[in-house]
């Protein structure tokens, strides 16, 4: 029977090692299937986070041969002839084996002011497909945090204190472009959110499993909105002459 050779990182914050496992191949097998095989037949304590195995929940993020991806969506037949090296996400503190501590992402999420509207009680919203489409793209996010992991600001410059990361930018974009939202989050973006730390090198967009255009549709439009507010004297002048729809400041 054909076999795949998996080299899986085993260890915790005190260090670790690579362990080699031979796993019999079945048609259409994905990396997560192989990890489950290892658990059932070799090492029951191999730690991995997973839920749906259908690329819906975004739990099984890892780095396969140096590329951050969802294990449930990474087919083993892609790697015929080479070993498959499975490592935990680099950007987040390691807990054990393939499991990392992603709680920082949730802490950041708490700092984003929620959806806020001023519609009268008891009346359904009247909004059209053209109004919701942009934000719907951002609502596809499954919070796998692969974008946060690959973002070099967070990954290599350890910039968690300076930049909220691509996932948060997508979240903020979904709120800012919500047709009924009345808050203005550009101040947050410029200060604590640290949008200027993003140098739009697009790695987040390149590997988003939901194919959200993180850079082109979320971050760049947000940068433009920040520029509208803070770096465009002409617009400021126009705004002061003809105040359009007022948005509430929030930081």
């Amino acid at each position: 029977m054909e076999e795949a050779i998996l080299r899986v990182f085993r260890g915790d914050s005190n260090g670790g090692e690579e362990r080699i496992y031979r796993v019999p191949l079945k048609p259409g097998m994905v990396v997560l299937d192989a990890i489950h095989y290892i658990q059932a037949h070799y090492d029951a304590d191999l730690a991995v986070r997973w839920n749906c195995k259908a690329a819906r929940c975004g739990s099984c993020s890892a780095e396969v041969n140096g590329r951050p991806r969802l294990m449930c969506k990474t087919r083993l037949d892609e790697f015929r002839g080479t070993d498959v090296r499975v490592y935990p996400l680099k950007t987040f503190p390691l807990i054990k084996d393939l499991v990392t501590d992603v709680s920082w992402n949730y802490q950041v999420a708490r700092q984003i002011p929620p959806f806020t509207h001023k519609e009268p009680e008891g009346k359904p919203f009247i909004v059209h497909q053209v109004d919701v489409e942009r934000a719907q793209e951002f609502h596809k996010c499954i919070e796998c945090f692969l974008c946060q992991n690959v973002c070099h600001v967070l990954r290599d410059h350890e910039g968690q204190s300076a930049y909220f990361g691509p996932r948060s930018m997508v979240k903020i974009a979904s709120l800012e472009m919500h047709p009924k939202d009345v808050l203005d989050r550009t101040g947050l973006l410029r200060e604590k959110g640290g949008i200027a730390y993003c140098n739009i090198t697009k790695c987040c967009e390149d590997l988003c499993p939901e194919e959200i255009h993180i850079t082109d549709n979320a971050i760049i439009p947000l940068k433009e909105r920040v520029a509208d507010k803070y770096y465009d004297p002409l617009r400021a002048l126009l705004r002061s002459l003809a105040p359009s729809r007022r948005r509430e400041e929030s930081t």
Partner: peptide, 16 residues
């Protein structure tokens, strides 16, 4: 400015 530092995730194994 970036101030926070964290412990390295993987030490003895060489990340591919």
């Amino acid at each position: 400015m970036i101030t926070q530092t964290r412990s390295p995730a993987v030490s003895s194994a060489v990340r591919p």
